[in-house]
Design a protein around this nucleic acid. Sequence first.
DNA 1: TCAATAGTTCAATAGCATCGAACTACAATG
DNA 2: CATTGTAGTTCGATGCTATTGAACTATTGA
Lengths: 112, 112
Amino acid sequence: MQRPFMHPSVDAITLEGILYALADPVRLQIVRRIRDGSCAMNCSEAAPEKMAKSTQSHHFQVLREAGLIRSERRGVEVINSLRCDEIGVKFPGLVPTILTAAEQRNGSHKPE
Amino acid sequence: MQRPFMHPSVDAITLEGILYALADPVRLQIVRRIRDGSCAMNCSEAAPEKMAKSTQSHHFQVLREAGLIRSERRGVEVINSLRCDEIGVKFPGLVPTILTAAEQRNGSHKPE
DNA sequence: TCAATAGTTCAATAGCATCGAACTACAATG
DNA sequence: CATTGTAGTTCGATGCTATTGAACTATTGA
């Protein structure tokens, strides 16, 4: 059916939703990758490789519905960008603090 | 069997564990209550009333294993206190930022 | 010792996550 | 315009986790 993407308004974004979305290691990694990328990123780029596409799609849906990312169709692909600024209005420092903490964990995620 | 409580060392505390634990509204509320209480708090005090005791027990176990709370038997009850300071060493500002954001959400306690 | 209180453990069920398969939508080429 | 390829979505099934009531342990007080 390919319905258009639903993005919550800033008002509709909840702390529970954000924490729930970022509590999953895969989704946290996706957000980190989008943040680290120089520009908006398509789904396959941002998600782990070995994962089923349907699972990817599900994770992006959760991130979208939590208000963490904005997804837009750009031709054949979907590009995703963070909504950090918008979230920052409602929850100051929340996402940056979490992402900074994520860096602490693995030392900035150096591949080897 | 009533085995002794297991608390992870600060090193063993992970961001995923913290986010996972706090992603649940019930557990977030428990942590907020303990934080807001003047002193350490027993389980029944900190948890929602209508909840089954087994579920309470489970939630406290998750919080404990995430490293968010410290539980100690004090007579017939178990008192719980936050490990904010210890967590702050590894993840500076993380828990305070989340709890502050939780206040934003409902205006601390205004229903409408 | 008996009853009450505070939590824990266990087994069963209910709800969510993951996956493969089939599908849609767009782009590029013949 | 049909064909092929690419990027995601949707769906149905299965497998893991959350919640619960019931039975249990441990401590306190009468």
